[in-house]
């Protein structure tokens, strides 16, 4: 008689998770050891890790390749500005509210664009982002196309001193990415995660095994919209200024995110993290090249897609059996008696 259980962790994930926890504690303490400019950079890194991880969940796991997630970045940001400036809501409270509002809007949007398949679905997501952008440009209350800034009163309501404000925003950014990563790991470990992996590997096979593919994809799309909107809300809260072109920028919120995930590794949790690190390293060295920088990113992304489709993490991890988070599923049997 055998005892059978599913084991998620291995030697590598035990080390990896420990490192992550230590890193988290160190980063939480950053306001005490880092410069203000570094805090802003770190917050930006957290935002990209979060956005890329969410995109990865959507594309790498649920098979929904979206080139229109900027729709929700901008939507979350605009809802926050609207709530704070027109609704008198405290900006920090507005962040989760923006997420909820975006999730509610995502439901009918999904109903519409899920009628498109594969490649056409991708372009459909872009159309949605364009519609949001154009609607934002038409919203006179928020100064339409030229954009607007948060009034001083709203900014001060976060905290009275500038330093404290920066710390608060930094901690929220760190909390956001931590919660998002934690939620994704938790999801993937659950049976929904098993369903998602099945869908990713073989959708038809998953369906014929009773997995409600349509409902799961729907749920993932709405959940990702929720997360993306909150990240977007915080990004623009930090910037204080918003405009339709920056809020719904394809370059900033989709091109970079996709390149990060592709180079790091699609379909793995560690991919977006590795990818973001590489992206920012490249940016430090190449940023003043302007358009050439983006061109190089495009070339690198294509090269990775063709010759290392699992990304850099995929290359390393597959060869060495590494995982940072305990996500594998290994059937462990123990003989009894």
């Amino acid at each position: 008689m055998n005892d059978v259980r599913v084991q998620h962790s291995n030697w590598s994930s035990r080390i990896g998770t420990t490192i992550v926890v230590i890193a988290f504690v160190a980063l939480a303490a950053a306001p005490w050891w880092a410069e203000r400019a570094d805090l802003r950079l770190l917050a930006e890194i957290y935002a990209y890790v979060a956005l890329a991880s969410l995109w990865n969940l959507l594309a790498g796991y649920a098979g929904l390749v979206s080139v229109g997630q900027q729709a929700y970045v901008g939507l979350g940001a605009y809802i926050l500005f609207a709530l704070a400036m027109l609704g008198g809501v405290h900006p920090l409270a507005a962040i989760p509210l923006a997420g909820v509002a975006a999730a509610i809007i995502a439901v009918p949007v999904a109903a519409l664009i899920f009628r498109l398949r594969g490649h056409y679905f991708a372009i459909g997501t872009w159309v949605v982002a364009e519609v949001f952008r154009l609607l934002a440009a038409q919203t006179a209350a928020l100064d339409g196309g030229s954009g607007t800034s948060l009034p001083a009163a709203v900014v001060l309501s976060i905290a009275s001193s500038r330093a404290t404000r920066e710390f608060v925003i930094y901690w929220i950014a760190l909390a956001q990415v931590a919660v998002i990563l934690f939620a994704i790991v938790w999801l993937l470990r659950s049976r929904y995660g098993l369903a998602l992996t099945a869908i990713r590997d073989n959708e038809l096979g998953a369906r014929s095994n009773g997995v409600d593919v349509a409902r799961i994809k729907y749920a993932v799309y709405v959940a990702v919209a929720f997360g993306t909107a909150m990240v977007g809300a915080l990004i623009f809260l930090q910037k204080i200024r918003i405009s339709p072109d920056t809020a719904f920028s394809v370059n900033d919120w989709t091109a970079f995110v996709i390149f990060i995930t592709v180079i790091g590794g699609i379909g793995r949790i560690e991919g977006p993290i590795i990818g973001t690190v590489i992206f920012f390293l490249l940016r430090q060295t190449l940023a003043d090249l302007g358009a050439i920088y983006l061109l190089i990113l495009g070339v690198v992304a294509i090269a990775v897609m063709l010759w290392a489709p699992k990304g850099l993490w995929g290359l390393i991890a597959d060869r060495l059996g590494w995982q940072v988070f305990p996500l594998q599923r290994r059937l462990v049997t123990k003989r009894r008696g």
Partner: peptide, 22 residues
């Protein structure tokens, strides 16, 4: 797999735009 052609043509789009910009 639908990811490779989608992502490669997306990368191409970025390359062309920025190349023309330069």
């Amino acid at each position: 797999d639908l990811l490779p052609p989608l992502l490669v043509t997306f990368g191409l789009s970025v390359i062309i735009q920025n190349g023309l910009l330069e």
